[in-house]
Amino acid sequence: MFDWRWAFVADILPRLLKATGNTVLAALLGYGIAAILGLVFALAQRTAIASVNRTVREVVEFIRSTPLVLQIFFVFYVGPQFGITLSPWAAGMIAIGLHYASYLSEVYRAGIEGVPKGQWEAALSLSLSPVRTYSRIIIPQAIPTAFAGMGNYFVGIFKDTPMLSVIGVAELMHTANAIGSEHYRFLEPYTLVGGIFLAISLPTAALLRRLEARIRRKMGLRPR
């Protein structure tokens, strides 16, 4: 029953590693979109205009409460219905970028709101301008708080990239599926995919944790 074939592994590993490049690329691109769009969402929720506030909050809630895989299908298939055809990559990046932007906007918001009220008051009492207050006092203190969440979602986006296989993005999972159905063997490709994910996500998470500790130390903040 247990029939692990090393020769087969050697055969398919180069193909899987090549696909890993696409997976990492997808994660980086998606994260870039999410990081910027998330900031837009977060700031939009801090404006004084109540209608903008409410609308953005509802949109963020909706995106966060529904499955990413369904959103990927939605973006990919709804376009053509209205005459806009998106490539799998484009549709995938839009869906993943939007999904994680809604998460990151909450991370940013929590970071800013986590700065104690006394810091705002001290800045006021020293007559610092709003721009200086944000750039010198609030955001530097929000970053260490937000960093952990930002790091988690970076690893999270990486682990969600297999969902892109459903619309045919040639990333790791898609390649493993292809290999599996070509050779009628799933043990090695799926196990290798799991191993590759572990081999990347665990060190990345550890690295991000160390980076966070370093940022906190550099800013003279207590370790968490």
Partner: peptide, 30 residues
């Protein structure tokens, strides 16, 4: 507000700045 200085119960020093940096931030900026 520049006419008034305030010391708070919980100090409200800026934790990411040194003691000196806390004291020069507003004089330089404001």
């Amino acid at each position: 507000r520049t006419n008034i200085g305030m010391c708070f119960q919980h100090f409200n020093l800026f934790p990411h700045m040194t003691a000196l940096e806390n004291c020069i931030e507003a004089p330089i900026q404001v």
